[in-house]
Design a protein around this nucleic acid. Structure first.
Lengths: 205, 205
DNA sequence: TCCATTCATGAACATAGTGTCCAGCAACTC
DNA sequence: GAGTTGCTGGACACTATGTTCATGAATGGA
């Protein structure tokens, strides 16, 4: 579960309003998608004054960024703990998280999510993928690492967004397996990876 | 080269204004990206009245769609002629076209392109990829076709957009080879393809 | 409990963009 | 040349954004 930080040093009023605004945006995104949400919508649902909104945020975007950073932090943290040495350890975890938080993730990454979210998440994933691949690149690599990273992340994001939009006809586990089977062979041969631990299509239950 | 149709049956004035508006939008997109362009910008650059604009189009989006459909048509036509029986025949052709029409394609598919363009092009590519794959699916397929299509298109779009944004540090040919090397192994094994003509990473000069 | 500080409020305002309407004039087609 | 069709520009209603400010209330430290 992703939660906002609650720094007890900040004024309680500040915490309350910021929280209310964040919650409002997310609920509204679930209802009608990011682009369609207006500041007026947000302050109505959050029940705060217009001027209050603008003393805390400059933009609709700025409110959004905080939510994305929460998700990004979740991804970073989780992939280090759970991912371990497994190639693309974030994949399974992310699909499962997306399954539990369907509505939120669909709002963020589905069709209505908006390009800003997509781009930020893409960058986080690109870092994770790169960190996964760099130590495994072999001498026989025939495809530039940057291109591999872009391709892998592109494929992953595509699978994830479509899965969310289609109301998840597959299980998270099936999605993870599909992603690995589809992507790992090309990555292994393209980068000249020799000992792909955890790189097989199948995986422990 | 993508060109607008010039149906001689329509009034010359209509042709002129519609053309001017299309051209104006594209130039403005190259300057500052789709989202930032306003209707006021368009009519100023196209030098037509505001009411004129709205008698021809309901939206900024509608102007854009025509440009996309041109590109889509180019893709469909080209991939049938040039692509032939080669797997993912559109790839090389698209990279080369994107190279020649850098600014336009960057405006459409780069960061500033907007989600609408991305989605429309994605759909066209998905059709092409699907048509390519359907007749080759073998009995030993382990990954659902839909997921393969999504993954392949996602990877391709990612490579293409990044390539455009990075001002093309690689050649179209290198990009095409990278795409094939990265994607084809997984597709072949995931779909149980037995005789992948033209599926090898290398290719004739 | 008190009180200086900080925050929330809402209403007014300036700005910018969208989309509609219409009457008069110009360009086009046949 | 005449009738049709399209272009024009200006006015208008509407929605949304972001700023400002005086007022009153909540807060947290002493």
């Amino acid at each position: 579960m992703i939660t906002r930080e609650h720094d007890p040093r900040t004024d309680r009023r500040v915490r309350r309003t910021r929280d209310a605004i964040h919650r409002a945006l997310i609920e509204l995104m679930i209802e009608k998608g990011y682009e369609a949400v207006t500041v007026a919508d947000i302050i109505t649902k959050a029940d705060v004054g217009r001027s209050t909104f603008y003393t805390h945020f400059t933009d609709k975007r700025e409110v959004l960024y905080a939510s994305i950073d929460d998700l990004a932090g979740f991804l970073r943290a989780g992939s280090q703990v759970k991912g371990g040495r497994r190639l693309f350890g974030f994949s399974r975890m992310m699909f499962e998280h997306a399954h539990e938080q369907q509505e939120l993730l669909r709002a963020l990454l589905g069709r209505g999510g908006g390009a800003i979210v997509y781009e930020r998440i893409r960058l986080v994933l690109a870092d994770l993928v790169r960190d996964d691949l760099v130590p495994r690149v072999g001498p026989g690599a025939t495809v530039p690492l940057d291109l591999v990273v872009d391709g892998v992340v592109g494929a992953y994001m595509a699978l994830l967004s479509r899965w969310l939009d289609e109301r998840e006809p597959h299980t998270p586990h099936e999605m993870d397996v599909a992603f690995r089977r589809l992507v790992i062979p090309g990555v292994v041969s393209g980068l000249g990876i020799t000992a792909p631990e955890g790189a097989a299509g199948a995986e422990p239950r």
